[in-house]
Amino acid sequence: MDIIVAENIRKKFKLKNGQKVKNNGVVSDEVEALSGFNLKIRKGEFLVLVGPSGSGKSVFLDLVSGLSAPTGGVIYLDGKPVQAPSAKTGYVFQQYALFPWRTALSNVECGLEAKGVPKDERVRIARELLSLFGLSDFEDRFPYQLSGGMQQRVSIARALATKPEVLLMDEPFAALDAQTREILQNELIRIWEGTDTTVIFVTHSIDEAVFLADRVAVVTARPGRIKELIEIDLPRPRTGEIRSSTEFARNRHKVWLALKSEVSKAEQYTKLATGFAG
């Protein structure tokens, strides 16, 4: 069953006054981030979006979360068009995603507050999640007192607190060092495998994509659309050891092949159209 259906999505951004971009020789003050973007996401699957920089992967997450609206097309969540942020989706951002004035515990409580969950219950749920991520001893710490990896754990715990049907993760581990990154991937997959949450995960790392995903969706260079959907046939539950297996390498190669041509296309674009970081 499909929990999310994106039909013929288009998303355009207007550039700031005076800024111009060249698309196939045509000068314009608009950037088309997504065009003809179609994707069906199965309930309970772990879907990873990979694609060159500026291919609109994060834009797609914003559309699914309801933070912004598509220029054309519709995204259905549970059969209903997404119009505004709802409790059905949880969002984990790349950075600066915790409220610095709240402790780890209080940050996890965030999503439950607007839902009117009583304080005792909020604290109980938040403690449970923090302990799941091994952060029980750090519940009274403020974000600046936590390492980057711990901050992202809190951020994921917070997104899970409302028990969302869909968890959106926008390069959540990109700012972490390689070791911490692997530890967090292992933790995420361990915790996720015990839930029925659907995850849409954006990354630049092919290794990360292959290790986590049920399916990897390769997005084209701007304007982004789905180029290829690749089933990752690695057994679950997955542990860190799987990274050094031959099956892993084979899957990795499949994704790499699909991605390679898009990345070089995107590089040519950026050479032509400087000044857009999209």
Binding site: P85, C110, E113
Partner: peptide
């Protein structure tokens, strides 16, 4: 970022 978070958490 905090304004976006506020929307996500329905503040």
């Amino acid at each position: 970022k905090y304004q976006e978070l506020a929307r996500v958490f329905d503040f």
